[in-house]
Nucleic acid binder design. Structure first.
Lengths: 209, 209
DNA sequence: CTCGTATTGGACTGTTTAGTCCAATCTTGT
DNA sequence: ACAAGATTGGACTAAACAGTCCAATACGAG
Protein backbone atom coordinates (compact mmCIF):
# COMPACT_ATOMS: atom_id res chain seq x y z
CA UNK A 1 0.00 0.00 0.00
CA UNK A 2 2.55 2.63 -0.92
CA UNK A 3 1.65 5.99 -2.40
CA UNK A 4 4.00 5.27 -5.27
CA UNK A 5 1.76 3.96 -8.02
CA UNK A 6 3.42 6.24 -10.43
CA UNK A 7 7.01 7.45 -10.81
CA UNK A 8 7.25 7.17 -14.62
CA UNK A 9 9.90 4.51 -14.45
CA UNK A 10 12.01 3.49 -11.46
CA UNK A 11 13.95 6.63 -10.61
CA UNK A 12 15.72 8.03 -7.65
CA UNK A 13 13.65 10.39 -5.58
CA UNK A 14 15.33 12.97 -3.38
CA UNK A 15 13.72 14.53 -0.32
CA UNK A 16 13.18 17.70 -2.28
CA UNK A 17 11.54 15.83 -5.13
CA UNK A 18 9.29 13.97 -2.73
CA UNK A 19 8.19 17.22 -1.15
CA UNK A 20 7.38 18.77 -4.52
CA UNK A 21 5.48 15.71 -5.61
CA UNK A 22 3.42 15.63 -2.43
CA UNK A 23 2.60 19.34 -2.74
CA UNK A 24 1.37 18.83 -6.27
CA UNK A 25 -0.81 15.87 -5.33
CA UNK A 26 -2.29 17.69 -2.33
CA UNK A 27 -3.15 20.77 -4.34
CA UNK A 28 -4.65 18.61 -7.08
CA UNK A 29 -6.69 16.63 -4.55
CA UNK A 30 -8.14 19.78 -3.03
CA UNK A 31 -9.03 21.30 -6.38
CA UNK A 32 -10.49 18.10 -7.76
CA UNK A 33 -12.63 17.66 -4.67
CA UNK A 34 -14.31 21.03 -5.03
CA UNK A 35 -14.19 21.56 -8.81
CA UNK A 36 -14.31 18.02 -10.08
CA UNK A 37 -11.57 16.08 -11.85
CA UNK A 38 -12.27 17.15 -15.43
CA UNK A 39 -12.84 20.77 -14.50
CA UNK A 40 -9.45 20.97 -12.80
CA UNK A 41 -6.71 21.90 -15.27
CA UNK A 42 -3.01 21.25 -15.01
CA UNK A 43 -2.47 25.01 -14.83
CA UNK A 44 -4.92 25.23 -11.92
CA UNK A 45 -2.81 22.68 -10.10
CA UNK A 46 0.41 24.51 -10.90
CA UNK A 47 -0.94 27.82 -9.64
CA UNK A 48 -2.33 26.29 -6.45
CA UNK A 49 0.82 24.32 -5.68
CA UNK A 50 3.32 26.93 -6.84
CA UNK A 51 5.07 24.28 -8.91
CA UNK A 52 6.26 24.64 -12.50
CA UNK A 53 5.10 22.61 -15.45
CA UNK A 54 8.35 20.71 -15.72
CA UNK A 55 8.07 19.76 -12.07
CA UNK A 56 4.65 18.26 -12.61
CA UNK A 57 5.61 16.40 -15.77
CA UNK A 58 8.81 15.25 -14.14
CA UNK A 59 6.76 13.37 -11.57
CA UNK A 60 3.71 12.39 -13.64
CA UNK A 61 3.43 11.11 -17.19
CA UNK A 62 0.04 12.66 -17.80
CA UNK A 63 -2.99 14.17 -16.16
CA UNK A 64 -4.42 10.67 -15.79
CA UNK A 65 -1.34 9.64 -13.85
CA UNK A 66 -1.80 12.64 -11.56
CA UNK A 67 -5.44 11.68 -11.04
CA UNK A 68 -4.35 8.18 -10.07
CA UNK A 69 -1.95 9.64 -7.52
CA UNK A 70 -4.77 11.80 -6.16
CA UNK A 71 -6.96 8.72 -5.80
CA UNK A 72 -4.20 7.00 -3.83
CA UNK A 73 -3.62 9.96 -1.53
CA UNK A 74 -7.29 10.67 -0.88
CA UNK A 75 -7.87 6.97 -0.38
CA UNK A 76 -5.10 6.70 2.18
CA UNK A 77 -6.49 9.65 4.11
CA UNK A 78 -10.05 8.33 4.13
CA UNK A 79 -8.97 4.84 5.14
CA UNK A 80 -6.76 6.28 7.87
CA UNK A 81 -9.66 8.36 9.21
CA UNK A 82 -12.02 5.40 9.10
CA UNK A 83 -9.49 3.11 10.71
CA UNK A 84 -9.27 5.50 13.64
CA UNK A 85 -13.03 5.94 13.80
CA UNK A 86 -13.97 2.28 13.43
CA UNK A 87 -10.92 0.30 14.47
CA UNK A 88 -12.01 -0.22 18.05
CA UNK A 89 -15.78 0.00 17.70
CA UNK A 90 -17.50 -3.04 19.15
CA UNK A 91 -20.93 -1.80 20.21
CA UNK A 92 -23.96 -0.26 18.59
CA UNK A 93 -23.27 2.91 20.55
CA UNK A 94 -19.83 3.06 19.01
CA UNK A 95 -21.35 2.70 15.56
CA UNK A 96 -23.71 5.55 16.31
CA UNK A 97 -20.82 7.75 17.36
CA UNK A 98 -19.12 6.92 14.06
CA UNK A 99 -22.30 7.93 12.24
CA UNK A 100 -22.47 11.21 14.19
CA UNK A 101 -18.94 12.12 13.22
CA UNK A 102 -19.58 11.52 9.52
CA UNK A 103 -22.83 13.46 9.54
CA UNK A 104 -21.42 16.34 11.56
CA UNK A 105 -18.41 16.73 9.31
CA UNK A 106 -20.58 16.71 6.21
CA UNK A 107 -22.98 19.18 7.81
CA UNK A 108 -20.18 21.76 7.90
CA UNK A 109 -20.39 21.97 4.12
CA UNK A 110 -24.16 21.40 3.93
CA UNK A 111 -23.38 18.27 2.02
CA UNK A 112 -21.44 20.05 -0.70
CA UNK A 113 -18.80 18.05 -2.64
CA UNK A 114 -20.03 14.75 -1.20
CA UNK A 115 -17.74 11.92 -0.12
CA UNK A 116 -14.12 12.46 -1.10
CA UNK A 117 -13.89 8.90 -2.35
CA UNK A 118 -17.39 8.57 -3.74
CA UNK A 119 -17.12 11.69 -5.88
CA UNK A 120 -13.84 10.51 -7.35
CA UNK A 121 -15.33 7.09 -8.02
CA UNK A 122 -18.30 8.50 -9.87
CA UNK A 123 -16.14 10.75 -12.01
CA UNK A 124 -13.34 8.37 -12.77
CA UNK A 125 -14.75 4.84 -12.74
CA UNK A 126 -15.85 4.76 -16.36
CA UNK A 127 -12.89 6.67 -17.74
CA UNK A 128 -9.76 5.14 -16.21
CA UNK A 129 -9.63 1.43 -15.52
CA UNK A 130 -6.61 1.66 -13.21
CA UNK A 131 -8.16 4.38 -11.08
CA UNK A 132 -11.39 2.40 -10.93
CA UNK A 133 -9.52 -0.63 -9.62
CA UNK A 134 -7.82 1.46 -6.95
CA UNK A 135 -11.15 2.89 -5.87
CA UNK A 136 -12.70 -0.54 -5.83
CA UNK A 137 -9.90 -1.73 -3.54
CA UNK A 138 -10.31 1.31 -1.30
CA UNK A 139 -14.06 0.80 -0.96
CA UNK A 140 -13.41 -2.84 -0.11
CA UNK A 141 -10.91 -1.78 2.54
CA UNK A 142 -13.37 0.68 4.06
CA UNK A 143 -16.06 -1.98 3.98
CA UNK A 144 -13.74 -4.40 5.74
CA UNK A 145 -13.36 -1.90 8.57
CA UNK A 146 -17.14 -1.84 8.88
CA UNK A 147 -17.35 -5.61 8.71
CA UNK A 148 -14.71 -5.80 11.46
CA UNK A 149 -16.75 -3.61 13.76
CA UNK A 150 -19.84 -5.68 13.02
CA UNK A 151 -17.91 -8.87 13.79
CA UNK A 152 -16.97 -7.46 17.17
CA UNK A 153 -20.64 -6.65 17.76
CA UNK A 154 -21.34 -10.26 16.89
CA UNK A 155 -18.66 -11.49 19.28
CA UNK A 156 -20.24 -9.40 22.01
CA UNK A 157 -23.59 -10.99 21.34
CA UNK A 158 -25.15 -7.85 19.90
CA UNK A 159 -25.61 -9.63 16.57
CA UNK A 160 -26.70 -13.21 15.97
CA UNK A 161 -23.95 -15.53 14.73
CA UNK A 162 -25.80 -16.27 11.51
CA UNK A 163 -25.87 -12.60 10.45
CA UNK A 164 -23.64 -11.90 7.46
CA UNK A 165 -21.32 -9.14 8.60
CA UNK A 166 -20.02 -8.71 5.05
CA UNK A 167 -23.49 -8.29 3.62
CA UNK A 168 -24.43 -5.83 6.34
CA UNK A 169 -21.22 -3.90 5.74
CA UNK A 170 -22.09 -3.63 2.04
CA UNK A 171 -25.52 -2.28 2.90
CA UNK A 172 -24.10 0.17 5.41
CA UNK A 173 -21.51 1.36 2.91
CA UNK A 174 -24.21 1.93 0.29
CA UNK A 175 -26.32 3.82 2.82
CA UNK A 176 -23.34 6.08 3.51
CA UNK A 177 -22.57 6.69 -0.17
CA UNK A 178 -26.18 7.10 -1.19
CA UNK A 179 -26.66 9.42 1.76
CA UNK A 180 -23.70 11.54 0.68
CA UNK A 181 -25.16 11.87 -2.83
CA UNK A 182 -28.65 12.80 -1.66
CA UNK A 183 -27.20 15.31 0.80
CA UNK A 184 -25.02 16.83 -1.90
CA UNK A 185 -27.98 17.21 -4.25
CA UNK A 186 -30.31 18.59 -1.58
CA UNK A 187 -27.57 20.70 0.04
CA UNK A 188 -28.82 19.33 3.33
CA UNK A 189 -27.35 16.54 5.45
CA UNK A 190 -30.76 15.34 6.62
CA UNK A 191 -31.20 12.59 4.00
CA UNK A 192 -27.72 11.29 4.79
CA UNK A 193 -28.54 11.06 8.48
CA UNK A 194 -31.84 9.34 7.73
CA UNK A 195 -30.32 6.77 5.41
CA UNK A 196 -27.51 5.76 7.75
CA UNK A 197 -30.00 5.64 10.60
CA UNK A 198 -32.14 3.21 8.67
CA UNK A 199 -29.15 0.95 8.07
CA UNK A 200 -28.22 1.08 11.75
CA UNK A 201 -31.82 0.45 12.76
CA UNK A 202 -31.80 -2.66 10.63
CA UNK A 203 -28.61 -3.87 12.27
CA UNK A 204 -30.09 -3.18 15.68
CA UNK A 205 -33.28 -5.03 14.80
CA UNK A 206 -31.27 -8.19 14.16
CA UNK A 207 -30.33 -8.30 17.86
CA UNK A 208 -33.75 -9.67 18.75
CA UNK A 209 -33.37 -12.41 16.11
CA UNK B 1 -43.28 20.27 -15.52
CA UNK B 2 -42.51 21.13 -19.15
CA UNK B 3 -39.29 20.25 -20.86
CA UNK B 4 -38.90 23.88 -21.80
CA UNK B 5 -36.61 25.25 -19.14
CA UNK B 6 -34.60 26.98 -21.75
CA UNK B 7 -35.54 28.65 -25.06
CA UNK B 8 -33.25 31.69 -24.73
CA UNK B 9 -36.15 34.10 -24.60
CA UNK B 10 -39.78 33.42 -25.42
CA UNK B 11 -39.69 32.52 -29.12
CA UNK B 12 -41.87 30.68 -31.52
CA UNK B 13 -40.92 27.06 -32.02
CA UNK B 14 -41.88 25.22 -35.19
CA UNK B 15 -42.25 21.46 -35.43
CA UNK B 16 -38.95 21.30 -37.27
CA UNK B 17 -37.20 23.32 -34.60
CA UNK B 18 -38.65 21.12 -31.86
CA UNK B 19 -37.39 18.01 -33.62
CA UNK B 20 -33.90 19.44 -33.98
CA UNK B 21 -33.84 20.52 -30.37
CA UNK B 22 -34.96 17.10 -29.15
CA UNK B 23 -32.34 15.35 -31.30
CA UNK B 24 -29.61 17.51 -29.84
CA UNK B 25 -30.73 16.90 -26.27
CA UNK B 26 -31.02 13.14 -26.83
CA UNK B 27 -27.56 12.90 -28.35
CA UNK B 28 -26.12 15.01 -25.54
CA UNK B 29 -27.85 12.89 -22.90
CA UNK B 30 -26.43 9.68 -24.34
CA UNK B 31 -22.92 11.05 -24.62
CA UNK B 32 -22.96 12.62 -21.18
CA UNK B 33 -24.19 9.39 -19.65
CA UNK B 34 -21.28 7.34 -20.97
CA UNK B 35 -18.51 9.98 -21.16
CA UNK B 36 -19.50 12.31 -18.38
CA UNK B 37 -20.75 15.88 -18.66
CA UNK B 38 -17.41 17.69 -18.70
CA UNK B 39 -15.81 15.21 -21.04
CA UNK B 40 -18.56 15.68 -23.62
CA UNK B 41 -17.80 18.57 -25.95
CA UNK B 42 -20.20 20.62 -28.02
CA UNK B 43 -18.57 19.22 -31.14
CA UNK B 44 -19.18 15.68 -29.87
CA UNK B 45 -22.85 16.52 -29.55
CA UNK B 46 -22.97 18.05 -33.03
CA UNK B 47 -21.34 15.03 -34.62
CA UNK B 48 -23.59 12.58 -32.80
CA UNK B 49 -26.78 14.49 -33.54
CA UNK B 50 -25.88 15.60 -37.05
CA UNK B 51 -26.80 19.15 -36.16
CA UNK B 52 -24.79 22.27 -36.96
CA UNK B 53 -23.31 24.68 -34.47
CA UNK B 54 -25.80 27.41 -35.25
CA UNK B 55 -28.63 24.96 -34.62
CA UNK B 56 -27.31 24.18 -31.18
CA UNK B 57 -26.68 27.78 -30.25
CA UNK B 58 -30.04 28.76 -31.70
CA UNK B 59 -31.73 26.56 -29.09
CA UNK B 60 -29.32 26.89 -26.18
CA UNK B 61 -27.48 29.87 -24.78
CA UNK B 62 -24.50 27.89 -23.57
CA UNK B 63 -23.25 24.45 -22.75
CA UNK B 64 -24.65 24.86 -19.24
CA UNK B 65 -28.09 25.51 -20.71
CA UNK B 66 -27.76 22.32 -22.76
CA UNK B 67 -26.78 20.39 -19.66
CA UNK B 68 -29.85 21.71 -17.89
CA UNK B 69 -32.03 20.51 -20.77
CA UNK B 70 -30.35 17.11 -20.54
CA UNK B 71 -31.13 16.96 -16.84
CA UNK B 72 -34.78 17.68 -17.58
CA UNK B 73 -35.03 15.08 -20.32
CA UNK B 74 -33.21 12.35 -18.42
CA UNK B 75 -35.24 13.20 -15.34
CA UNK B 76 -38.53 12.90 -17.21
CA UNK B 77 -37.53 9.53 -18.59
CA UNK B 78 -36.43 8.15 -15.23
CA UNK B 79 -39.54 9.42 -13.47
CA UNK B 80 -41.72 8.00 -16.22
CA UNK B 81 -40.03 4.61 -15.89
CA UNK B 82 -40.33 4.63 -12.11
CA UNK B 83 -43.94 5.75 -12.25
CA UNK B 84 -44.72 2.72 -14.38
CA UNK B 85 -42.68 0.42 -12.19
CA UNK B 86 -43.90 1.71 -8.83
CA UNK B 87 -47.24 3.38 -9.49
CA UNK B 88 -49.36 0.39 -8.64
CA UNK B 89 -47.06 -1.47 -6.24
CA UNK B 90 -48.79 -2.21 -2.94
CA UNK B 91 -47.08 -5.34 -1.66
CA UNK B 92 -43.62 -6.40 -0.62
CA UNK B 93 -43.61 -8.79 -3.56
CA UNK B 94 -44.26 -5.87 -5.88
CA UNK B 95 -41.34 -4.00 -4.33
CA UNK B 96 -39.12 -6.99 -4.90
CA UNK B 97 -40.11 -7.13 -8.54
CA UNK B 98 -39.22 -3.45 -8.84
CA UNK B 99 -35.83 -4.22 -7.31
CA UNK B 100 -35.30 -7.11 -9.73
CA UNK B 101 -35.97 -4.87 -12.73
CA UNK B 102 -33.47 -2.25 -11.57
CA UNK B 103 -30.80 -4.81 -10.82
CA UNK B 104 -31.30 -6.74 -14.03
CA UNK B 105 -31.12 -3.64 -16.16
CA UNK B 106 -27.96 -2.49 -14.44
CA UNK B 107 -26.49 -5.98 -14.79
CA UNK B 108 -26.60 -5.63 -18.58
CA UNK B 109 -23.83 -3.02 -18.29
CA UNK B 110 -22.07 -4.70 -15.34
CA UNK B 111 -22.89 -1.56 -13.41
CA UNK B 112 -21.10 0.76 -15.81
CA UNK B 113 -22.21 4.41 -15.95
CA UNK B 114 -24.32 4.08 -12.80
CA UNK B 115 -27.71 5.68 -12.35
CA UNK B 116 -28.62 8.12 -15.12
CA UNK B 117 -29.81 10.62 -12.56
CA UNK B 118 -27.26 9.91 -9.86
CA UNK B 119 -24.28 10.34 -12.17
CA UNK B 120 -25.59 13.67 -13.39
CA UNK B 121 -26.21 14.77 -9.83
CA UNK B 122 -22.70 13.95 -8.72
CA UNK B 123 -21.15 15.77 -11.68
CA UNK B 124 -23.35 18.81 -11.76
CA UNK B 125 -24.56 19.50 -8.22
CA UNK B 126 -21.59 21.61 -7.14
CA UNK B 127 -21.15 23.41 -10.45
CA UNK B 128 -24.61 24.61 -11.54
CA UNK B 129 -27.14 25.70 -8.96
CA UNK B 130 -30.10 25.53 -11.33
CA UNK B 131 -29.29 22.00 -12.44
CA UNK B 132 -28.81 20.98 -8.83
CA UNK B 133 -32.26 22.26 -7.94
CA UNK B 134 -33.81 20.35 -10.83
CA UNK B 135 -32.06 17.19 -9.73
CA UNK B 136 -33.14 17.74 -6.17
CA UNK B 137 -36.75 18.04 -7.33
CA UNK B 138 -36.41 14.91 -9.47
CA UNK B 139 -35.00 12.87 -6.60
CA UNK B 140 -37.85 14.09 -4.43
CA UNK B 141 -40.35 13.05 -7.08
CA UNK B 142 -38.79 9.59 -7.35
CA UNK B 143 -38.78 9.31 -3.58
CA UNK B 144 -42.47 10.24 -3.50
CA UNK B 145 -43.21 7.33 -5.80
CA UNK B 146 -41.44 5.05 -3.34
CA UNK B 147 -43.24 6.63 -0.39
CA UNK B 148 -46.54 6.10 -2.23
CA UNK B 149 -45.86 2.41 -2.64
CA UNK B 150 -44.89 2.14 1.02
CA UNK B 151 -48.11 3.92 2.01
CA UNK B 152 -50.09 1.35 0.09
CA UNK B 153 -48.18 -1.38 1.92
CA UNK B 154 -49.16 0.38 5.09
CA UNK B 155 -52.81 0.56 4.04
CA UNK B 156 -52.71 -3.16 3.35
CA UNK B 157 -51.39 -3.79 6.83
CA UNK B 158 -47.95 -4.86 5.66
CA UNK B 159 -46.42 -1.93 7.53
CA UNK B 160 -47.38 -0.62 10.96
CA UNK B 161 -49.21 2.74 10.89
CA UNK B 162 -46.51 4.43 12.95
CA UNK B 163 -43.79 3.68 10.37
CA UNK B 164 -42.54 6.78 8.57
CA UNK B 165 -43.01 6.04 4.89
CA UNK B 166 -41.08 9.17 3.96
CA UNK B 167 -38.12 8.19 6.10
CA UNK B 168 -38.14 4.67 4.71
CA UNK B 169 -38.36 6.04 1.17
CA UNK B 170 -35.27 8.17 1.84
CA UNK B 171 -33.39 5.15 3.10
CA UNK B 172 -34.48 3.06 0.14
CA UNK B 173 -33.48 5.79 -2.29
CA UNK B 174 -30.06 6.05 -0.68
CA UNK B 175 -29.66 2.27 -0.86
CA UNK B 176 -30.44 2.42 -4.57
CA UNK B 177 -28.04 5.29 -5.26
CA UNK B 178 -25.28 3.92 -3.05
CA UNK B 179 -25.79 0.54 -4.67
CA UNK B 180 -25.41 2.04 -8.13
CA UNK B 181 -22.15 3.71 -7.11
CA UNK B 182 -20.64 0.59 -5.56
CA UNK B 183 -21.71 -1.47 -8.57
CA UNK B 184 -20.18 1.06 -10.95
CA UNK B 185 -16.90 1.03 -9.04
CA UNK B 186 -16.76 -2.74 -8.70
CA UNK B 187 -18.11 -3.34 -12.22
CA UNK B 188 -20.43 -5.86 -10.62
CA UNK B 189 -24.10 -5.48 -9.70
CA UNK B 190 -23.77 -7.68 -6.62
CA UNK B 191 -23.26 -4.85 -4.11
CA UNK B 192 -26.27 -3.03 -5.55
CA UNK B 193 -28.45 -6.09 -5.11
CA UNK B 194 -27.16 -6.59 -1.58
CA UNK B 195 -27.77 -3.01 -0.52
CA UNK B 196 -31.33 -2.81 -1.86
CA UNK B 197 -32.03 -6.20 -0.31
CA UNK B 198 -30.93 -4.91 3.07
CA UNK B 199 -33.27 -1.94 2.78
CA UNK B 200 -36.14 -4.21 1.78
CA UNK B 201 -35.32 -6.62 4.58
CA UNK B 202 -35.57 -3.75 7.01
CA UNK B 203 -38.95 -2.75 5.65
CA UNK B 204 -40.10 -6.34 5.86
CA UNK B 205 -38.87 -6.63 9.43
CA UNK B 206 -41.15 -3.79 10.47
CA UNK B 207 -44.16 -5.96 9.66
CA UNK B 208 -43.68 -7.93 12.84
CA UNK B 209 -43.48 -4.68 14.82
C1' DC C 1 -48.89 35.38 -51.81
C1' DT C 2 -45.86 37.73 -48.71
C1' DC C 3 -43.67 39.41 -44.87
C1' DG C 4 -41.58 38.54 -40.49
C1' DT C 5 -39.31 35.28 -38.11
C1' DA C 6 -37.59 30.72 -37.21
C1' DT C 7 -34.07 27.81 -38.82
C1' DT C 8 -29.85 26.43 -40.92
C1' DG C 9 -24.65 25.85 -42.73
C1' DG C 10 -20.34 26.43 -41.65
C1' DA C 11 -16.35 29.44 -41.54
C1' DC C 12 -14.09 32.08 -38.09
C1' DT C 13 -12.15 33.81 -33.51
C1' DG C 14 -9.86 34.03 -29.24
C1' DT C 15 -8.83 31.27 -25.47
C1' DT C 16 -7.57 27.40 -22.99
C1' DT C 17 -5.70 22.97 -22.89
C1' DA C 18 -2.35 19.07 -22.22
C1' DG C 19 1.95 18.13 -23.20
C1' DT C 20 7.18 19.08 -25.01
C1' DC C 21 11.73 20.83 -24.75
C1' DC C 22 16.12 22.58 -23.33
C1' DA C 23 19.27 24.72 -20.72
C1' DA C 24 20.38 25.74 -15.91
C1' DT C 25 20.90 24.21 -11.18
C1' DC C 26 20.78 21.26 -7.18
C1' DT C 27 21.90 16.50 -4.70
C1' DT C 28 23.96 12.34 -3.82
C1' DG C 29 26.86 8.26 -4.01
C1' DT C 30 31.56 7.24 -4.26
C1' DA D 1 35.60 16.74 -5.05
C1' DC D 2 33.04 15.32 -9.01
C1' DA D 3 30.33 12.91 -12.24
C1' DA D 4 25.66 11.10 -12.92
C1' DG D 5 21.41 11.91 -12.52
C1' DA D 6 17.48 14.43 -10.15
C1' DT D 7 15.17 18.70 -10.20
C1' DT D 8 13.72 23.09 -11.89
C1' DG D 9 12.00 27.45 -14.81
C1' DG D 10 9.39 28.74 -18.25
C1' DA D 11 8.87 29.49 -23.17
C1' DC D 12 6.76 27.01 -26.79
C1' DT D 13 3.42 24.09 -29.69
C1' DA D 14 -0.43 21.90 -31.71
C1' DA D 15 -4.85 20.74 -30.90
C1' DA D 16 -9.29 21.30 -28.91
C1' DC D 17 -12.50 24.24 -26.99
C1' DA D 18 -16.85 27.23 -26.39
C1' DG D 19 -18.90 30.62 -28.53
C1' DT D 20 -19.81 34.33 -32.64
C1' DC D 21 -21.33 35.79 -37.01
C1' DC D 22 -23.55 36.35 -41.40
C1' DA D 23 -25.73 35.15 -45.28
C1' DA D 24 -29.04 31.79 -47.08
C1' DT D 25 -33.29 29.23 -46.69
C1' DA D 26 -37.72 27.28 -44.78
C1' DC D 27 -42.05 28.19 -42.61
C1' DG D 28 -46.45 29.99 -40.86
C1' DA D 29 -49.80 33.66 -39.93
C1' DG D 30 -52.76 36.80 -42.12
Amino acid sequence: MTTAADPPTGRRLTARGARTRANIVSAAADLMYVQGVEATTIDDVLTASGASKSQLYHHFDSKDALVRAVVEQVGERVIEREREALGKVSTLRGLRRWRDALVRSNALRHGAYGCALGSLASEVADHDALARQSLSRLFAEWQDLLAGALSRLQDGGALPPEASTDGLATGLMAAVQGGYLLAQTAQDVAPMATSIDMALAHIESLTAG
